[in-house]
Structures are given as structure tokens and as C-alpha cells.
Design a protein around this nucleic acid. Structure first.
Lengths: 256, 256
DNA sequence: ATGTGTGAAACGCTTCACAGCA
DNA sequence: TGCTGTGAAGCGTTTCACACAT
């Protein structure tokens, strides 16, 4: 999960659990694929497999939306596509701005998945005057000076930050002051935002670090398994009420 | 959260909860910043603020690693940096390959956060013969034909997929067959992988859809609040044992 | 006095298992 | 018969609140 919400700790969204909301786009994608193949109905089992979840979870998720299935048959693909789209608010148009048109910003601007789901890139904004006017993804880059004007004129409520870390906080403040209430942050910084503003973050480095943790553990497991096979003692035996470092491999010398 | 693990449902990682693992990189970043400013110690309160979590959670997280703090004082910054790095496996070198050098792949190749944390881009791989040899981020792009050879020779265990959706599954299969056991997937597809392979996904479109859901809800709340203020009835009153659509706004006509 | 470390309670999410409808 | 919809149980995570070390 390359992500993380920010506030709204208690306020659960209209009775739909956050975890369910996070999966709806997944279901929607699978359903759209079925729709394109003109499949009329799916069972929870089939759809769950396509979305990479288990069927009980999927049925529970759908139960929060209403009773949209038919017992003994399954779910009507078209109907579900519509209901989920509506639930996610994709039946309306969402103008977004992308701030920071470096490699990543350009990649986002070119990303087809935006336009296809009700999202419309209203503007590309960069602080570099040399970028101004340059076409990226068939759209002229605009200077940061125009930020407030663009947001107000287009009624933008969702902003994407793809700037360097150092600029992100200030950009977010300008976006919010101009009326943005949802931010997708690609900069590796924790944004400080007022109550009522949603922030989701995508952090490449964090994702890799989590993978590294598990990768390391696989190697450790292999060793542990080998050791366990060779020894009679179970792995992780002697580990009583010792403190200061749950491992055996705590270095004698700490780094300065 | 722009993310999602794949398998390992039960096997919790050496007693450290998955949720905690996902936050360690966050703490590490905050600690690194403190370290660069030569701050010797932090309290859980301060560090939590910097990482954007609450202090109780942070203390609980650290308690899984061991007792690394000093009561009445706080945590030694350098020591914690080292411990977390070690826990995450960042004290070793992780060669990674990036497959699919489009806009996004190039952005990833140029992303500084990789190199800084023990990750080393071992190769950039693309299926387009016209890309082969072209330098991206100071590195020549190599053709997909070389994939297996590159992975074996460099001992790569982590692969990043930034290809179009259609190619992702096949690429993942080749990566895995060649020895990769962790994949960071940017393609909007659910990868089917064998037991023992970790997949994390980052999906831009999904993140936006989740934001849109909450954004829509904000608008709905504003209306509901206004309605509640005008009426005597509480919002969401009449909603008894009705079925088929928990909302009032179910359309009379379904889309074809 | 200050701030960590942690049992215990509260909470939310997942999974189970089966009643009930087509 | 087949598959949905859902109470209830199980599990993991978060939060509370305070004992305890410094």
C-alpha cells in the first residue's frame, strides 16, 4: 500500500468502511473489464478472483452499498459498474491540477487512467519559468503564479503534488487557500494540513523499504529453517524476559 | 494508502505487526532529518508530530523493536536511525531493476530516494528496441531480452514494474522465474503471483478515486448539514428495513 | 518531574458459516 | 441447487491510562 490517509480518524464515511472504499476502485476496474467483454453477470467468487480479494470480503463490501446481487445467480455487471461509479463520485467531473512537472509530473499528466474515470487534468503547473508554455501531454505548462487563478476559475478541489519535498508544504498551503480540499501527495514529506482537508500520499521509497523488510525476512527465515532443521531446538527459543533488543544480533558498538 | 500487500495473510513478520512495519520508513525519514540537524534526542511526542502519527502509536511501534528509549528523556536519534535501518534491512545493498522505461519508469530511475536508502538501480529494462542503449538517469536502457541475465548476474530480488497494464503479468512471471521475490507494481493490474512472492502496488487512479469519494461526501455533508439545519428531522432518518439501495437517490432507470 | 513502556479496553476489519432467496 | 447477504466470532490495530525508570 503506497498510501496513507491523513485526518478523519473517527468520522466513518456514510457507513461505508474506509477499507471497503479503498477496494471499490479495484472492483470497478475488474467490472469494467468484464463489461468490455460483454459479460452480463458475475459471481462473487469470480469477481473476487479478478480483483485479487476473497469472496466473503467482496460480498461484505457490496452489502454496505445495498443488495445489488441476485441469490443463486450473481451480480449484474452493468448495474454494479454504475452503482460503484456513483458511490465513488465518478459520475461527475473532477478537474485536477498537477503541480510540479518534472519526470513524475509529466508521467502523471500522460497517465491515461486519469481521464478515463471522470478525472480531467485542468492544468499543469510548475515553478520553473523555463517550463511555462512548454507542452506536456498536449497541454501548456503554466507558471505557479497562476495557481490561485486556475483553481478558482476551474473549481478545482483535487490537487496533485509532484514537486520536490522542499516545495510541497508551501504548495499545499497555496492549493488549500485557493479552495482545494483533497491532495494526492507524491513528495516525500508529511504535509501539515487543516482539518477538513484530505491527504493521500504515495511514496515510492517507503514501498521499497517495506518490500526490503519482507525480503530480508525471507532470507532470515531460510536461515532459521536451515538452523531448525539442523538443530533440535525450535527457532526463536531462548528469548525470555530480556530487554534492550529483541534480537540476538544487536551490535556491541553503536554508531556514533 | 496507495498500496496493498498480496499474500502472507497469517504469517506475521517476526512479531512486528505489518502496520508497524509500514510506519518504520516514516519514522526513519523524520529521524534522518533530525540527525542532519544534529539533534541528539527526541521525545515520542516530537517525533510523532514530525512523522504525522500520534505518540502512543509511535511508542507502541518502537516497543516491538525493543526498549530503545530512555524514560524521562526520549530516544537517541542516531541509535534509532541505526536500529530502524537494520530492522528494515537497509544496512544491506538491494539491487533493483525497473522494467518499463516510459515517463513513469524514467521518473523512478531519476528518483533520488532510491539510492539514498540502500537501493541501487541495477538496470533499466524496456521492451522497445528503439530505447535500447539510450541513457536514462545516466544509465543505458537495456532490452527485455537481457532481463533474466541481468537479474541473475546482479542477484536482483526486487523488481519494479512500470510497464503498461497489458505487459505487467508477463513481466512479473519472467522476473519471478529469474529469481525476483518482491515486486513493486505500478501497472493498473492485479498480478497473479505464486506463494512466497511479495507484491505491493501503487495505483494513481485508485488513489484519486478514493479522494473523489471523500470529496463527494464533503459536498453531500454540506448539503445534509444545511438540510438538517433547515429541517427538524435528523439527517439519514427514514432508513428502516428497506432493501435495494441504501440511498434515496437510486435512479429509476438503470444504464443499459 | 518527565516521558517511556505496556497491559487492557476499544475499535475496525476480516473471516466464518449458514439462513434465506431465486 | 447455487450463491448472496449477514450475524457472529476471530484477529489485528489503535487508543487509553498509568506504573515505572531516570
Amino acid at each position: 500500500m503506497a498510501t496513507g490517509r491523513t485526518h478523519r480518524p473517527a468520522t466513518r464515511s456514510r457507513g461505508i468502511p474506509e477499507a471497503t472504499v479503498a477496494r471499490l476502485p479495484l472492483y470497478l476496474r475488474a467490472l469494467t473489464a468484464l463489461s468490455e467483454r460483454s459479460v452480463p453477470t458475475v459471481s462473487s467468487e469470480e469477481l473476487a478472483a479478478a480483483a485479487g480479494v476473497n469472496s466473503a470480503k467482496l460480498r461484505k463490501d457490496f452489502s454496505y452499498l445495498g443488495s445489488y446481487g441476485t441469490r443463486g445467480v450473481g451480480y449484474d455487471v452493468e448495474y454494479l459498474v454504475y452503482q460503484i461509479s456513483r458511490e465513488l463520485g465518478l459520475t461527475q467531473d473532477w478537474p485536477v491540477v498537477i503541480v510540479g512537472i518534472g519526470n513524475l509530473g509529466a508521467a502523471l499528466a500522460n497517465y491515461g487512467g486519469f481521464a478515463s474515470r471522470g478525472f480531467r487534468v485542468a492544468a499543469l503547473i510548475d515553478a520553473d519559468p523555463a517550463m511555462a508554455g512548454k507542452p506536456v501531454a498536449g497541454m501548456p505548462v503554466q507558471h505557479t503564479d497562476e495557481l490561485e487563478k486556475i483553481i478558482e476559475e476551474n473549481g478545482v478541489s483535487i490537487g496533485v503534488i509532484a514537486t520536490p519535498a522542499g516545495a510541497a508544504q508551501q504548495v499545499s498551503e497555496r492549493l488549500i487557500a485557493a479552495g482545494v480540499t483533497s491532495i494526492l501527495n507524491f513528495a516525500p514529506t508529511v504535509l501539515q494540513v487543516p482539518e477538513g482537508v484530505d491527504v493521500r500520499k504515495v511514496d515510492l521509497s517507503i514501498e521499497l523499504q517495506i518490500l526490503a523488510f519482507h525480503e530480508q525476512r525471507k532470507a532470515g527465515d531460510a536461515e532459521a529453517a536451515a538452523a531448525a532443521a539442523a538443530s533440535v531446538l525450535p527457532p526463536r527459543a531462548a528469548d525470555g524476559p530480556t530487554r534492550k533488543g529483541p534480537d540476538g544480533d544487536v551490535p556491541a558498538v553503536m554508531p556514533a
